[in-house]
Amino acid sequence: MTEQVARRPALAHLFWWFMFSQGGVLAALLIPVHIVVQGILGPLGVVKVVDRHYDTWISILGNPIVKLYLLVLISLPFFHFAHRLRYLLVDLGVPAAKSFPAQVVFYGAAILVTLVTIWVLLTTAPISLG
């Protein structure tokens, strides 16, 4: 181990861990209900769901609050996933997943998903307060 004189708090690690934990909480609180309603109950026809018809789906997607919600719902958990999957690789015996390039790839992917989500939300449905 190197001498501790040279040791400084790893602010990058701190930031990514912070994003990991926030994304984890959000994923835990919100994803199951989306899977149950949109992924299972809706397609099986058990309940009427907003994405079953074009007009209901497009009108709710136009709501700015919904847009903001979806941005947070989709992008933040990806910082959680990126962190977990990077350490999963470490656990499976790939120490290279700790390296700086690996961090760029994994957290970069989360940033990319965030940018794509912003683009999709801004381009699919025009903003309307309805």
Binding site: Q38, K48, V49, V50, H53
Partner: peptide, 9 residues
């Protein structure tokens, strides 16, 4: 769940 179902048709 209420929003997803409530705004459905």
């Amino acid at each position: 769940g209420a929003v997803l179902i409530g705004f459905g048709r």
